[in-house]
Design a binder for these strands. Structure first.
Lengths: 194, 194, 194, 194
DNA sequence: AATGAATGAGGATTCATTCAT
DNA sequence: CATGAATGAATCCTCATTCAT
């Protein structure tokens, strides 16, 4: 079983993509770093994009796994929600370039990459859904439409990815996440103080 | 006045970038479409990225202008906020590929692109700040820290750009925006019904 | 009389050629530095090479003039020869263009440029010839063939131009010139001590 | 062993550079003549200049080798010196364009070319030094400073390269070399006949 | 399965020269 | 005379992919 090469390629590619992004990473580099001939890569993958897709896939799986773990460590729905938010950013930080939005340079497989990225999104949504559901059952949350709310929350969080992870913003993200959470729980209308 | 060529180049480039993105648009194409010699482009711009930067710049300016206009059409702070959100997405829809987030590994010149994109963000924040301020003064909103809240809101909205504009998600964005707005105003905690 | 533009072009071109060489100097640069439109240059010169040729011509004239002056200040043939050598290098230091053989990028006018450079050489030879002649008449020098000797000397001196002026050698040229002069006068054979 | 391609590239490049010089030789040409894809050249060299540098290097090595051989064929120091001068020009004649002195304004990469050319110069100096030394020991030459003299001689010889090799002068170089040699040995002062 | 040499289709950029105003 | 916008040929370099060994 000579899966070692395959493993080497994927590991190396992950590192390379993480550091330089999809486009700026070229196969020469991966091959050199993986101590493998360039041709070997083509024994396992149809193309550079094939490699990327596989790396992306693995990454998403891992991230979902780790977020789930973090959430399950908490008991109350509020804390679970908070844990979700924080662990999401913790674990995604390293995957910035891999998830990378670099929509160019993927062309035909763009669709597949989107599908994978959407899997991540849907997994997140489904985690949030169960948190919200539990909150509803326990009377902590009050919502009209759990799924809609969950999706809205997840969409919102992507904004922080964009500016913070991708944009390399120097601001302390936690501030904003905390603020967002506060709004999320209480809203901004003064009437809530009735 | 021979600014016609320059205008032709910028207009064409805008269209091309909007359709194919920065990388897949090549100068040959722009030159051909603008009925101009490739060298002519270099009379006006130092490089391909120079063209992109200019197009990006213009686009951002226009968007900010149009959002501001839309907001000012409303009177109440709540409606202004709603108007902000909706017009933001209306006007950004067309600029998807131009603003495009292709990160391609944090390059030299692309740094300027980030700066321009951040300008857009800051402009948005400043619009939201004035809305929130007005809301506070009128006693409609109740907030601890206006700036922080404004930034948190703007960060959140970026998530919708990511999934909806960039990701080409087929979902009806308005649903989510409305839901987000509802949460924004009232929060999700049941305690608000005290 | 609008010779000002012409003068500006030539002066600027001289500087530019001296600093960057023929090939790396482009007309844009000359035009910009001379505060003149690029097209204007083509009113005075048929081509870039035409400009170069003119610059080269002027330099040669100036140098010959100045060397002649320096030599004529001396009285004895030996001192005249020494003066020739030293003033040649003094005055050529600034005229790097002449040496700038950059044979590539001149193409068709290569021949003309060579002719101009040869003019300088021949002028030098003719100066040395008259020095040697005078030396012979006064019985200070003893030679078989004045012209041949003069040419050999001038050829030799070009070696110092090459390494010192062009090559940017850091060595103190005077050392070598003095040594050369010593050999020139006495030779290296020990038999001279008969 | 697939070094054939490399050899083909270098051989072809040598021919091309020798015929057209560095600038007028383009990679397309080399590739075509070497029956090789353009990209292949980049497998072996970082750039066009990389190719040039290698060719230049080889050429210099060969020249030094051949000059040394010629000199060693002679026995007396006087004849060795004469042999040095003549073989130097013999062997350099073919390398004119390769060594070519197109100065193009002291560029980045060309700095290395200068280094290589200087190596040639230093090798020549060191050959002359050993000839002079031997001459001194045998009482044939009388000198104050061997190194200084050697360098002065080599500098002088460069003048002949300049006018004869590079300048394409039609004159019979041997005449001048012989004359130079005569002066070198005996000087021009009549006092030598004491 | 593994290699790595070879490929060649692109794409960005430079610059001398022309010409209408 | 002066301008400077427009031209487009020429050239270097990158890199995903193929293929003979």
């Amino acid at each position: 079983m000579k899966k070692e090469k395959l493993e080497a390629i994927l590991t190396t590619a992950r590192t390379a993509f993480a550091r330089y992004g999809l486009r700026k990473t070229n196969l020469d580099e991966i091959a050199r770093m993986a101590r493998v001939a360039k041709g070997t890569i083509y024994n396992y993958f149809r193309s550079k994009e094939g490699v990327y897709l596989q790396v992306l896939s693995r990454e998403v799986e891992e991230i979902v796994e780790e977020i789930t773990l973090s959430v399950n460590r908490e008991v109350s729905p509020e804390k679970k929600l908070a844990s979700f938010v924080h662990s999401k950013f913790q674990h995604m930080r390293r995957a910035v370039n891999i998830l990378n939005l670099d929509r160019e340079g993927i062309e035909e497989h763009l669709h597949k990459a989107d599908t994978i990225r959407n899997d991540l999104f849907e997994s997140e949504v489904s985690i949030v859904v169960s948190i919200l559901k539990e909150g509803m059952e326990k009377g902590v949350f009050k919502l009209n439409d759990i799924l809609l709310t969950a999706r809205a929350i997840c969409h919102s969080l992507r904004g922080f990815e964009l500016n913070w992870l991708v944009g390399g913003s120097q601001e302390r993200i936690e501030h904003y996440l905390d603020e967002l959470q506060r709004i999320l729980f209480f809203g901004i209308l003064s009437e809530r103080n009735c």
